[in-house]
Nucleic acid binder design. Structure first.
Lengths: 345, 345
DNA sequence: AATTGGCACTCCCGCAACACGAGTGCCAGG
DNA sequence: CCTGGCACTCGTGTTGCGGGAGTGCCAATT
């Protein structure tokens, strides 16, 4: 049973350790914080904390270091989000102002967040399941090759090259275009995908004349699928080299995860948020993703096209207070900008 | 004046150092290579090489290590490209086979090259200056917002969101579409950009009714510009963590350059190739780009759409022979695939 | 003139011994 | 329940000391 003061001690340990990067002892605690008690008393509290597995000593008779569990308690109960300084606020707006192409906006967001926190920043693309297809275009490149382009009302465009089984002429292309257009224009991405699948199912072995349509449908299906897949943008990978010493092994798994993307995407998606849309995943909690020495802190953001997350990835020993504050603020700004954007439409 | 054998000694030093990662002494040279002479003789040669600044000793009375200049001589005169093993060749074809969307092809190429060399792989997009615009499409998102899509005969598609000064209806959009189409369809990217600039110049202060056209033209101009800009795809950044000890300082500058892209792009572009389209930039030669402890090895590849480079980035102490062989082989494959692609059209 | 064996010298590296200091755990007394 | 005191542990930095790898130079040999 840890006392009230015991938790205060834990908070002090986390704060000091994050700041100094060195195990913290009972003496330095009484020096740096005004507990009204002596070092020996702190030591007793620390013994309790160690029993609860909230802190640990790297070596016998050395200072203590928070465990994963200790950080978890700190984040859940002890940390108060540090609000941004006004300088930081103005920095964000400076970064994020300007024309609001979605890709561009998210790219700038992720850079801002990385700058702000000094960590690797992650921004999830909003899911496009609810977006509506406004336009499907086929462009003939000559021969049997076509470009299929899908545009949604969120302004997102995606394209893919399709190769038909035979050469096509312009009337073929016009026919295909008409068929496709009827099938998906005006549908949501989800419905559109369903209708395409249905159409495909109705023609399990396409007749010779429909072979081209069949091939196109396959490509469109893939593409709509692509809309539903989550994507991630990142920035600040280089900062990992700076905090290299924070990772006992090497930073290889981190860099690998960053390159893989999909791992981080799953991690981001599976974190559970608290009441305010904030979430953290600490150290061993990331074991399924192979990042046991790292932490991720994230915040939900909302746009009418869907909901997603922004976050930062860094060493377990990170400044949770300010990082939580930063991701929340950035998520906030981002939601607002996307909303304005929607209203403008 | 270094003798013939002196150069052989340099070759031996480079090879052994790359392999063992340790300064190499005269004795180990006579053991590992069958020079018909004694260690003392090798020592004399090494003294000469040191005078010429081709090798250096980390500490007095320690083995020698090649200098930047030593590597340069090795690459220029001493290295013979190591041909790929058949296993490697089959690995490349396995990687690169399949449908040939350009983005996809280059992404797979860069992964293959990274795998092959164990280094960071870099692939420059071919320049699209010679590509022809086959199609310009406007899609109305509602209100004043439009998506502008440009498609070239190389199958590359690029899009951007444009905001007109006023609300638009479908007839406005149709008009704009027609005007734009006349202006750039069928032109090469370069000519198209010129014609758009011309049109813009003719309307320095657009009349009210042409304001929308004006805005569109700006966006199209930017987009065509984007086609001409070089791009880079990369893979294998994580491998840097593996060869961490090879960088005296930290790998921070490397990661930063990788994230910046533009630095590496300039570096790649400014390297001068030898007669076979191969180029290397070693250590201090990269000083203008802040990568004095790294080397880049690259090979030109040719496609009808333009010419560009594939390369690898790694520690100065890399296996130049096999890396040169790898980039040349991959460039070769890539050229061939792109050509087939063109013929198929 | 080139090569070679010999030899003294330098300097890195690993090891052990040692003192120092920070920090702990425990206990007895307030 | 808190406190001061005290013995104990253990990491860290310092020092000293071979051992070994490697060099540079020189005189002798081919």
């Amino acid at each position: 049973m840890v006392s009230e003061r015991g938790l205060d001690v834990l908070r002090a340990i986390v704060q000091d350790y994050v700041e100094t990067r060195e195990p913290v002892g009972s003496k330095s605690i009484v020096e740096r914080h005004s507990f009204g008690v002596s070092a020996a008393t702190i030591r007793n509290d620390m013994a309790l904390l160690e029993d609860e597995d909230l802190i640990a000593a790297p070596h016998t008779s050395s200072g203590r270091v928070p465990t994963d569990k200790g950080y978890r308690v700190f984040v859940n109960h002890l940390a108060e989000l540090r609000p941004l300084t006004t300088a930081q606020r103005t920095a964000i707006t400076a970064f994020l102002d300007g024309p609001a192409d979605l890709d561009d906006l998210l790219a700038r967001t992720v850079r801002a967040l990385s700058q702000l926190t000094g960590q690797v920043a992650l921004v999830q693309y909003p899911s496009f399941e609810r977006a509506n297809v406004t336009h499907v275009e086929l462009v003939h490149l000559g021969g049997a090759r076509l470009v299929v382009i899908v545009v949604t009302d969120t302004g997102r465009v995606s394209q893919r090259i399709a190769v038909a089984p035979d050469e096509l002429d312009e009337t073929d292309v016009a026919q295909l275009r008409a068929r496709l257009s009827v099938l998906v224009t005006g549908q949501s991405v989800r419905e559109g995908a369903a209708r395409v699948d249905e159409a495909l199912a109705q023609q399990p072995s396409p007749s010779r004349s429909d072979a081209a349509l069949h091939a196109m449908l396959r490509v469109v299906a893939e593409e709509l699928e692509g809309f539903r897949q989550d994507r991630l943008v990142m920035a600040g990978a280089a900062t990992l080299a700076r905090s290299e010493g924070d990772f006992r092994g090497s930073i290889y798994p981190l860099l690998e995860a960053i390159e893989e993307q999909v791992t981080l995407l799953r991690l981001m998606s599976e974190m559970v948020a608290d009441g305010q849309g904030l979430a953290a995943s600490i150290g061993r909690e990331n074991a399924p993703f192979g990042l046991t020495e790292a932490s991720v802190v994230a915040s939900d953001y909302e746009a009418t096209v869907g909901q997603a997350r922004v976050g930062v990835l860094g060493p377990m020993r990170m400044d949770y207070s300010s990082n939580l504050g930063a991701v929340r603020a950035v998520a906030h700004y981002l939601s607002r900008l996307l909303d304005e954007d929607d209203r403008a439409r």
